[in-house]
Amino acid sequence: MSLLSVENLRVEFPSHQGPVEVVKGISFDLGRERLGIVGESGSGKSMTGRALMRLIAPPGRVTADRMVFDGQDLQTLPDKAMRRLRGARLSMVMQDPKFSLNPVMTIGHQMSEVLEFHGRQNRKQRRESVLKALRSVRIDDPERVYRQYPHEVSGGMGQRVMIAMMVILEPDLMIADEPTSALDVSVQSQVLDIMDDLIRYKGMGLILISHDLNLVSRYCDRILVMFKGRIVETCEAGQLHQATHPYTQGLLASVPVLNEHRNRLPILDRIQLGSV
């Protein structure tokens, strides 16, 4: 049985011109594997991730023929049961630690909250677990970071904290939504390597959302390509070059390669794509 099964997922928002669908009926299955979702900005990747966590607030509307996580129907699950899943079995790393961490709470407090919400351990044990989780993302002086506020750490450090916070209860599935897009290029692969190691070591499932085809093919087993709210291509990470859809081919062609001599990278032919 698969870990997550989604059929015909749709997300829509009302607008002046009537409801606008930003996710237009996507379906996929996921085991304990690393699935990448790529697509340009605005293609509906984040909305897909948030719909899975049931975090789309009204007036946004989510519908699906099927949305089942480990045998539990995410659409009909009571709020309380959903809260028990979040953080413990299903978690999410967001784009920019500058905004996704609470600015007026210490890092230690924010991390131990996950344990508190799920009724794990007493105060002292929680502290130990948090320090251990900080060490697991290769933070050398966890005691110091534990006491610090988010504004006192760098972006890369902040994102490592975020990852530690989201794996501390060893969830079955973690969604990482552009986890390095807000970081300096120099620390991006370091953060991704740390995350990848943890995911493999703990045997978790991962949905890695990114606009970067290279990055996704490096860290994922399978890739979904999204365009304008639809999945236009599904393939194994190794078989990207066999992609058939013009959008994916366009994306591939616009990735620069070392040692090549092209004066200009090709751009997507949107007029042709508009008809698909």
Binding site: G87, A88, F99, N102, V114
Partner: peptide, 10 residues
């Protein structure tokens, strides 16, 4: 966003 994070934590 940090409110979303809090909800993600359960």
């Amino acid at each position: 966003e940090y409110i979303v994070t809090a909800r993600v934590k359960g």
